[in-house]
Each structure stands twice: as C-alpha cells, then as structure tokens.
Amino acid sequence: MKTFAGSILFLDRSDINTDEIIPAKYLTEITKDALKPYLLEDLRLGSFDPAKDIEGKSVVVSRANFGCGSSREHAPWALEVNGINLVIAESFARIFRQNMYNCGMMAVELPAGGIDLLFKKFAGTGARLETDLKNSKFILTSETEKEETAFSISGFDRDLIEAGGWLGFAESRY
C-alpha cells in the first residue's frame, strides 16, 4: 500500500485540467518516470512555479472538478513519480478520480467549507498532513495550527487502495 502523508502543495483554483497536469506532448513517453519533470508544467496560477514548488511535496489540496478533461492516466502517474499519492479537493472529474484509485492512490472529496478552512489555515505555512486511513481522518499540522478533518471513502475505494489498484483487485476476483 502507498503512503499518504507529507508536505502539502496548495493549488487554489477550480477546474485544473489534465492538460495542465501533464501536457499531451508528453504522452509519447512510455515510462512513468519520464513524466517526472513535466508535472503541472502548463499550470499558470499566481506565483506557482513547478520547477520550485513541487519538490518535496506529497499531497495536493485543490478546489472543484480537479482533473477534468482527458482520460490520460499519465496525470496520476506524473503525480505518483513526484511522490504525490493523495489529492484532496472539493470534487473530481470522474475518470481522473477513478484513475487515482485504480493506481492505488487516493482522491478524497471534502466539502467546500472544509477545503476553504485548509486553505485559510495552512496554505503558505509549510504544513504537513498525515492520513489515518483506519479512522478516516486527515491530521494537518503547521508550526502554529493543528486540525483533524474526517473524510469518507467507499468500501470499494478502500479495497482498491489495499489491493494496490484495480488490476490487483480484478485479478483476484474475475
């Protein structure tokens, strides 16, 4: 099972799409590792600089409809090879969300108010996040703040995380 903890990359915009996460021109790569330098290359968002701001991050927190657009699993892979296995957002595009769990990664929805709170309290603070999967809660800590946030995931999604993804689950069942 993958780990779901570490420093947080805050991306404060809705509708961050797959072409921003990994542009189509890199879909000619046939290994996941080759995608590593290109994560979020086309995202224009305030002072965000992918060359500086991704290094050392393990969790993404964003707004609504994260991962909309293409079916490319290269989007989760580009996150995965950069050490990011967890995205928390107000909502996700269907295919992106399924691709995350299919890879044994997590895409967790929180209500808009909950996401707002995380941005207000922790964005720009160098905060860390731990995942208590057993009790379905995230623990966020910065130098001055601590916050526990409950989340819910379905039994199926939990099975996929534990099986390391859909291929492992399907192999054992069909």
């Binding site: 079916s71 691709n99 890879c103």
Partner: peptide, 28 residues
C-alpha cells in the same frame, strides 16, 4: 482509453472513456 469515447453513445450504447488501468482490466 480516450475521454471522447462518449461519442459512441450516439448509437444508444453506453460508451465511456477510461484510464490505462481500466483499459488493462478490460483487455484482460
């Protein structure tokens, strides 16, 4: 493994784009 697979719904089919892992399981 293409998001515009929804095109084929024009024929009254359920057609959906999926990622590579769904495709792998579909193939297998």
């Amino acid at each position: 493994g293409d998001s515009h697979t929804c095109t084929h719904g024009a024929f009254g089919a359920f057609a959906a784009g999926v990622g590579t892992t769904d495709l792998e399981v579909g193939i297998l």
